[in-house]
Simulated assay, not measured.
Amino acid sequence: MSMNWDDLRVFLAVARTESLSGAGRQLKIDPATVGRRIARLEEGLGVSLFAKSPQGYELTRDGGRLLAHAEAAEQAVSLGQDDLSGDGDERLKGVIRIGAPDGCANYVLPRVMARIAEDHPDLEMQIIAQPRLFNMSKREVDLFVSVSPPTSGRLLVQKITDYHLSLAAMRWYLEQHAEIAGLGDLQEHKLVGYVSDLIFDKELDYLEETGASEADYTSNSVSVQLNMIRAGLGLGVVHDFCLPFVPEMIRVLPQELRLKRAFYLVRHADDRKVERLSRFADVFCRRMRDEVDKLEREA
């Protein structure tokens, strides 16, 4: 049987989403059509590519063997598109999906996207904000921003920039509650932070550096934590790049507690030769550095 790219594209979508409905949403076709396409592919090859389980569609041994060839075909198609679009127009086009932790996604990336869009108006950028790590083998995103460099997997990792975090509270909250002259005074106040068992990266565990063992009000979302502090529930560790968005929120004990972390850009190793993604990564990192620096100076 001769396989065409459309069949392999459907196969890849099911392999990565582990469901017909997920693949259908990704490809914008009906799940029943996805099922028929997979059945036709299996019939033509004379093997079973997926095993249905309570968790979804799992690759069989033959499916795993086909996956490597399908991903190679995907890369070849991408490289071919890059080559054919190299017509002297330096502007980026098409769709690029970026994953990021929600703090970065909410407060930095929209500004970054706006700057990139000025020079590349035909580029469609999608931001996926998730308080977790992304699975590049399933191609959930084209690239993602991480707060620590991954140490496993076939990935390309480059540092984007350092950023800072500070203990912060609303000005009116500080005027109405006990004075804070040192970290020891924090025991008289409520703290806002992450849900401890939902911290997906060790770099997000800030509480130890405040001297507190646990937070009183918690969320897995940076944006929710920021709004908890804004509502006067207590103090919390806040990204400096968030502070310009809440003018009445101010740093507390800035000389005693200011944390430094870093953002990293992560891509699949197979995308090393995809010129469009490499160009985007360069532009993206430059704009990220500019925007983080600008927001921190405004804080």
Rank of each mutant, 00 (worst) to 15 (best):
M3T: 14
N4Q: 15
D6I: 12
A13R: 09
A15R: 08
A15K: 08
R16T: 12
T17R: 12
S19E: 06
L20P: 00
S21D: 11
Q26V: 14
Q26K: 15
L27I: 12
P31C: 06
A32Y: 00
L45W: 02
K52Q: 07
G56T: 05
G56L: 06
Y57H: 04
D62Y: 08
L67H: 08
H69I: 14
A70Y: 06
A72Q: 14
A76F: 12
L79T: 03
Q81N: 07
L84P: 00
S85C: 02
D87E: 11
R91L: 01
K93P: 02
V95C: 10
I96M: 13
P101E: 08
A105M: 07
A105R: 03
R111V: 01
V112Y: 01
R115I: 09
E118Y: 03
E118F: 03
I128Y: 08
L133I: 09
F134S: 05
F134P: 05
F134E: 04
N135D: 15
M136N: 00
R139P: 02
V145Q: 11
V145E: 12
S146M: 05
S146V: 04
V147I: 15
Y163C: 03
H164Y: 13
L165S: 04
A168D: 03
M170H: 03
Y173I: 00
Q176G: 05
E179I: 14
G184D: 14
D185M: 08
L186R: 02
K190T: 12
L191R: 01
G193Y: 02
D201F: 07
E208M: 08
E209F: 09
E209D: 07
A215I: 01
T218C: 03
V222M: 06
S223N: 11
Q225R: 14
Q225L: 10
I229Y: 03
R230K: 12
L235M: 11
V237S: 06
H239I: 02
C242W: 08
P244H: 05
P244N: 05
V246W: 03
M249I: 05
Q255P: 00
L257Q: 07
R261S: 04
L265A: 15
L265S: 09
L265D: 09
R267E: 14
D270F: 01
K273Y: 07
V274E: 09
E275T: 10
E291D: 00
